[in-house]
Design a binder for these strands. Structure first.
Lengths: 222, 222, 222, 222
DNA sequence: CATGAATGAGGTTTCATTCAT
DNA sequence: TATGAATGAAACCTCATTCAT
């Protein structure tokens, strides 16, 4: 088992192989249950080499979190058109997000399921990345409000809450869409295209936000 | 550390003490990192007693998941008014959800962060509970559509997606609202009341759904 | 599971019930693997009661060894006719031995398989019983030699060796005839009668010993 | 206690050292009472290394049983002269058996006392080895009968019984001869030579069998 | 007479990590 | 660059045994 043995590989390449193996193993087993033995075997190298390059399980996990976080942020960032209106930026960002998580489910699982649940310092690292995205989304919502001319009517706190709701909705959909009949040989439920998932979420969110921004309010007394 | 020592307690009581300790410890450390030693110490009993009553770490975790799942579903169920219109049911359900997760953050953390990431069979148990809630929300969205007279215009798959988005948004808000300056003795950021969180989410969601149901659609080409 | 609950039983009776349960459990599981929990459950009493009457696992095991040893020696002793010729005494003793081990296989298993393999002090207790039998057999062989008029031609050491060989042969046969298709519902191999097993061994042994000693052929009818 | 520390030993060598330590410890304490801690200490290595190489206590015990069984069968097999008459084959086989068990008393104790009393699957492994020897002995008895021209007069079942008696006698003698004043520094009772033990048993057995079969007297000098 | 409640001690097993080559 | 050999520490779990009622 494990990758094909190939000797004398440059360090940078070997490190990536190890991190690929780590992503796979952490996603499958969880941080604690994943053993360095298994990671080394999946990577096709000996355990001491993993330690030589990545120093410790903690540092390996941190490195994985960093790499996957940066890849996700890069994918989303690359997808948005900087100068476009807020709604278009959100739309393209969501497309990028769903595309990346669909193509890279193990990396997403490590970030979303594992890193966040392992306490400090890992939770902080992924929280920082999430905060970055949250800031971006918060800014977009603020910008949209401004574009609609309702500047100041939404408290900062409320805008933050909306951003959290929106990001949470996206995460939930990403998990729903990419989870499921993995091993089902027959009847493999086809996953919706990232574009369709993004459209569904935009419809849900934007119509709501549009109303909010435009004045229509639901009320508990209603 | 550890609860006050109280000797010779009836089994049923001790079991609840142990499960309380387990919820606390699993929430703090995660399933794998929580040791039976620590759980026993927090419960104020010896380790063998934990095994005598709860049999194994796996069974203890399962018992915790079951207890917390049922408590959450009961809280939400008790909050909704069965005969009311869909929007009112959703509103009261969300209030119940945020109230319960705010009062019981450790239980929620075990369900949402730990159980879902520990693979089979734990993930399945929470998934079943989540599916129950998802079914309820899905039915409410369908009912709302029917009340608005747009029966059939939303595909089942799309209604499911909207339910997943809504539940994900609620989960994200629950985490956001209840997380944070736990240890900060001073400057304790005040948590919003469950009612306000529910209202924010209802505004976000319902205005959006209202638009959708009423016909207004955001479009990527727009 | 376990015996029917019957309260307020006199101590002597309860002790026998417990020892019966212990024999069964020690035979099934071995000394170390048998737990006091299981013994108490099989006996139909609570664990503290076992300790109240039998004091400890070691003492319980010792008591079992003593009881079963005495029962075996008593069975063999009761079978032999004290004044008869040596060959008849051996023949009747073997019949008694095979009859007792066939009727009481668990007790025999505890003595032969468990007690002898658990080191001190248990091995010594059963060794003492075995030595008693060995002394008896040695005396019989000596007596037979004297009866045949070849007194002194066999060294004491050789007579002892012959006794060990004979007893070992008997033990091997006892295990062979009583072991086997326990659970086989169909095709239950019928066990030979103790009398036939004894006859086979007597023919094997006595013809050999008779030749060695110089005497005539032994026969069960003789 | 513990062997001399020798670091960085090849795996094959270490495995044999561990199995030697295991034989010693299982023989002294019994399977259950022997702890992996003690085995590792006797072997002069740390416990994890024992697990790394032998996987578990069960597998270690099985490996020991296999090694000692094969050694015993090999010793007996190597001792017999294949083409010789039945009595000579039995004689040389017994010499080989007593020589091996005398030289290797711990291995014999593990096979005869421990493995057979630990239930499945260990009992089965040693039972298979014993059955192999029993088959060999049974064949020899049958061959001797044929050589003496009394083919068919002994029922198969009776021949089997005789083989069991003979093997049991040998086992009993092996235990008697090799047991005893182990720790007695002074007055160490001298053990009889394997050759003498074999001669005693042959005289006991063959004279008996010879009479039964109708043939002449067996003699080690013959 | 009898038991539900409770534990100290010790068992097997795993794992992150290092050393010597 | 790369690895076979080795271990300290700690995890889960069991069991003989006792106390208080």
């Amino acid at each position: 088992m494990g990758a094909v043995k190939s000797k004398r590989v440059p360090r940078a390449v070997r490190e990536q192989q190890m991190m690929d193996a780590a992503v796979l193993t952490f996603a499958r087993r969880g941080y604690r249950a994943a053993s360095m033995d298994e990671i080394a075997e999946v990577a096709g190298v000996s355990k001491p080499l993993v330690y030589l390059y990545l120093n410790s399980k903690d540092e390996l996990f941190s490195a994985v979190i960093r790499r996957e976080s940066e890849a996700l942020v890069a994918a989303v960032t690359a997808a948005v058109e900087p100068g476009a209106p807020a709604d278009r930026q959100l739309w393209s960002g969501l497309k990028g997000f769903f595309a990346h998580t669909t193509e890279n489910p193990d990396g997403w699982a490590v970030l979303h399921q594992q890193a966040r649940t392992q306490g400090e310092p890992f939770a902080r690292e992924v929280a920082a990345m999430r905060a970055e995205i949250m800031t971006f989304v918060t800014a977009l919502i603020g910008a949209a409000a401004k574009e609609a001319g309702c500047d100041g009517e939404l408290a900062d706190r409320e805008v933050s809450a909306l951003a959290h709701a929106l990001v949470g909705a996206a995460e939930s959909l990403a998990e729903w869409v990419n989870t499921g009949t993995d091993e089902g040989t027959s009847g493999e439920r086809e996953r919706p295209a990232p574009r369709d998932t993004a459209a569904t979420l935009m419809n849900f969110a934007w119509a709501g936000l549009g109303r909010l921004i435009g004045g229509g309010r639901w009320s508990p007394e209603g």
